[in-house]
Every structure is written in C-alpha cells, then in structure tokens.
Write a protein that binds this DNA or RNA. Sequence first.
DNA 1: CCAGGCATCCCATAAAAGGGGGATATTGGG
DNA 2: CCCAATATCCCCCTTTTATGGGATGCCTGG
Lengths: 211, 211
Amino acid sequence: MIKLLLYEDNKPLREGLSMLMGGSEGFMVAGAFPNCNNVVEEVALLKPDVVLMDINMPGVGGLAGLKLIKNQFPEVKVVMLTVFDDNQTVFDAMKAGADGYLLKKTPPAKLLEYLQDVYQGGAAMTASVARQVLQLFAHAPVIEQKKDYQLSDREKEVLQWLVNGYSYKMIAGQLFISLETVRSHIKKIYEKLHVHSKTEAVTKAYKDKLF
Amino acid sequence: MIKLLLYEDNKPLREGLSMLMGGSEGFMVAGAFPNCNNVVEEVALLKPDVVLMDINMPGVGGLAGLKLIKNQFPEVKVVMLTVFDDNQTVFDAMKAGADGYLLKKTPPAKLLEYLQDVYQGGAAMTASVARQVLQLFAHAPVIEQKKDYQLSDREKEVLQWLVNGYSYKMIAGQLFISLETVRSHIKKIYEKLHVHSKTEAVTKAYKDKLF
DNA sequence: CCAGGCATCCCATAAAAGGGGGATATTGGG
DNA sequence: CCCAATATCCCCCTTTTATGGGATGCCTGG
C-alpha cells in the first residue's frame, strides 16, 4: 500500500486525483492540500511514501515545497506534476532532488505506473522530459581528465579566490596575509601552471577542472 | 507504422524481439542484425524510424553503432537496450545522443510503449535509469543553463579572446582594430555582465556557458 | 527623419597586475 | 643534520587594466 500526499491548488484536479488514487488498488491518499504552506508539518504527521506536487501553486510553491520536504525528509519520494515542461523548471526540480517529473497530460493509468516505479526506488519521467534530459547530455561538454599541477594547499586556496574575481588586495585581506605574499604565491602558481596572467590561470582552472 | 531495426547479438533474444515487434499493431521490423559491422549501410538502405540497439555486441559495439548512426542520420532515433545500468555506460550513451536507454528486463508491453514515445519525439528511459539521471542532477550542480546577456556579435568575439588570455593589445591586433576600440567593447561587456574585471568576466563566461 | 544601438577611435588618470630581484622561518624526509 | 619545499614578507619598475569622460559614423525601426 503506497501512502500518497497530494499538493495541487486546482480543486477539481485535486479531488479528481484523490479519487483516482484512493480508488486504485495498492494506493492510499493520506491527504490532499491546495498549497505547501504547512508542508513540513503535514509530511511529518502523515508520513507519506510519495508526495505528488504541483509546481505552480500560490503561497509556498511546489519547488519550495520540494526543497522543504527533501531537507527534512530525504527518504520521502517527491514527484513533480505540472503543465510546463520548459527546460529551466525541469532542471531546477531535478537539482532540488525531485524523484520524478510528470506532465499533467499524463494519462491516469500511466500516472499510477509511474508512482509505483517511484515507490520501488525508480524515478518517473515523461517521455518529453526525458528527451530534454538526453539532449542536455548530448550537448554537454566533454568530460576531461583532471590534471595535477602540484599546487600546494595554500596555492590552491589563492587560486580559488583569484578565480572568483578577487584582487590581490582582497585575497590578502581574506587570508590575513600581506599583499606581497599573495603576489609571491601567484608568481609560483603561474610558474606551475605555465601561464603569465590571471586570465590564463582562471581559464586553465576551468578547463582542467582544478576544482 | 513504425519501422524498426534491431541490433542484438543474442540470437534467441533477437528473434524473440523480432517476433514481438513484427506481430504488434503499428510496428514493422525492417531488419535484425547480430552486430553493427555494416550499420551505416543498413540504416541507409532500410531507413528505419527507430533503431533498437544492444550495447554489448562483438565487433562494432552498440555505443560505436549509435555514434555511427547519429553522425550520418541524426534524424533516426536510437534506443539503447542492455542488461547493464551502471552509471558510466548510461552516461556515455546519453552523451553520444541516444534517444532512450532501456533495460532488457523491461516487459514487452512497456517496450512497445517506449518505442511509441520515442517515435513521437519523446525519449525512453526505464525508471532505474531515470533515477540515476536525477541523482546526477541532484549531486552534480555542474549543469547550468545558458544565460543571455544580450552581447553583440562583436562583443562576444572580444570576450572570446579575453577568455583565451589575450591582452587588450593582442585582441586589437587579432581584430585589426585599435586598442581603444577593444577597451570600449570591454567596457560595454562589463556593463552587460555586471562585472568589474577581466577575471570576473572570464569566470562568468564559463559558469554561464556563454559559449 | 530621428533615436538608439553598434562599432570605431581618442585622452587622462589611478589602480592593479606582472616580472625581477631577495630575505626569513618552518617543516618534513632522506 | 641538511636540503627542498613551503609560507611569509619586502623593494623596484613596467605594463596592463579599469574607469571616467568624450567623438564620429552607420544602420535600423518606429
């Protein structure tokens, strides 16, 4: 028996989903709410296996709700449900740890299948969402091998600040050392990286995935 | 009618799949081969809509076959089929442009559904594969979306050289313009990117995947 | 036509970075 | 114990950047 929690602001849809789920073999609806304003308390109290979460809701939205749940209850599965499948929203949800991303046009029977999958440790993704993900990978930059330039810990530290756009003076302030010391470190870093400017060092740091 | 091509070295499985697909409404098997040794010719001749490709085959393997097909016929959908769902293989296939990644244990009915999805422009992913992908996103915040800072073509060009570690003077030489013009462009670029130094601009260029 | 964006060029000044030298102290391994 | 690497600091000098002002044409869309 999979215990579900629904978050969906549209009342007819919320009730429709409740009825569908509640009336299906192996499913049980523990609660259905129109917003995430008390999501942490509700999840704590009702202990669902899977949460079905609309993204566009007034008040605390679905993405925020997802993050709240995953922060407190990482073991609870959360499946996002939405009409939008634009790139950014999908990836935001993924990065926030969603266990699935389904479109509202998904037929009810499929919906139940997906929820089963998620309950069993899989992830749910509609074909169009999966497509976007695959395309992202196809166009992803090639993963390069990390190179080792034998930078000392301190040097790596300095390089980090450098990459983040800090001036020598600011780095000196951050590390509580003098400007001269920063300059010394940077001279050494350039030597080890075989570069002659901040920009080259930064580019090298990114290209060679120094961190 | 979806025209399929199968690549699978295991004879019983190949014939089983052929029979399943061939006997199903809306599907047609144009060919079934035990390896990818002549994959380009076969695809060119048989013009399939979707190719179902085993990963582990003797001779030219499935991954290589995938790449061969996608290089020559990017419009042909290729779905990978395998027993392995280890991270690296999945990831490799995705990067090579696979339109789907299915496990061999996928039930026949599901398999047909997935192929339909792929034919209609979606992507196919079994729940366990989808899970891995989502976890990758959750644990690897590396993948970002491109942002648009409305840089003009010329400005992008200048930024490119900047990123590559060229000094203003060198850029001026490269673009056959005066140092002053380079400076003007860079002022404008900084304005648009909301930064105040070369380093910040370079870092932003990498982080926001400006190219 | 005219405003706005773009590309081009110029000047001046202050801040930052790069390159060369050198010094001192600590530390860990052979 | 000594050496090499590291981390810290200092000076001098040149080049490069950053930022603030301009100006001039060219083109395009309202």
